[in-house]
């Protein structure tokens, strides 16, 4: 085999290898849309974040508008302080309501923003005042069970 065609084959091999890696990065790993633009950070404190993780989505009206960048336990308030990096294109009123939702019955958890009506917008470093914790399925079930038991007691 001549030296030129060997070089060509090696170049071809390396090229398609890199293309495969690029395919994985872009199409599978979604590197392209992972917060490429400018962001600003806002905070929120939750009583219970459930299974929320760093890099979980922040959605408003179902559209991803930011990602969770940091989760810390606050030892003063015994709450979870969540920092979110929001896409700079989107602004939210100061009285926006942050809830932790689950996509599907057992799906991933994300922060949902329900937009309020305030004239002023959340700026970098501000925190969302009104939050609602994650729904813990076990609690819900035990509440339901206790209620059932109480009902059947009183019915007797």
């Amino acid at each position: 085999m001549s030296r030129t065609s060997l070089d060509l084959w090696v170049g071809f091999f390396v090229a398609i290898g890199l293309v495969a890696l690029l395919f994985l990065a872009m199409k599978v790993g979604n590197l392209s849309s992972s917060m490429s633009g400018e962001t600003y950070a806002i905070k929120a404190s939750f009583d219970n974040i459930g299974a929320l993780k760093v890099r979980s989505a922040v959605k408003s009206a179902g559209v991803v508008v930011g990602r969770v960048s940091d989760i810390r336990f606050n030892s003063q308030s015994y709450q979870a302080d969540v920092t979110m990096s929001m896409d700079a294109r989107f602004k939210f009123p100061r009285d926006t309501f942050a809830t932790i939702n689950t996509s599907g019955l057992l799906g991933e958890q994300y922060i949902g923003f329900e937009v309020g009506g305030d004239e002023e917008y959340l700026a970098a470093g501000d925190s969302v005042k009104k939050t609602q914790s994650a729904v813990v399925l076990e609690k819900l079930i035990s509440q339901f069970m206790f209620k059932q038991a109480a009902d059947s007691e009183s019915g007797k």
Partner: peptide
Amino acid sequence: FWSQMQASVDFREDI
């Protein structure tokens, strides 16, 4: 198929 894949595969962590 694609969007769930993209939502849960992390570039640094997984790839």
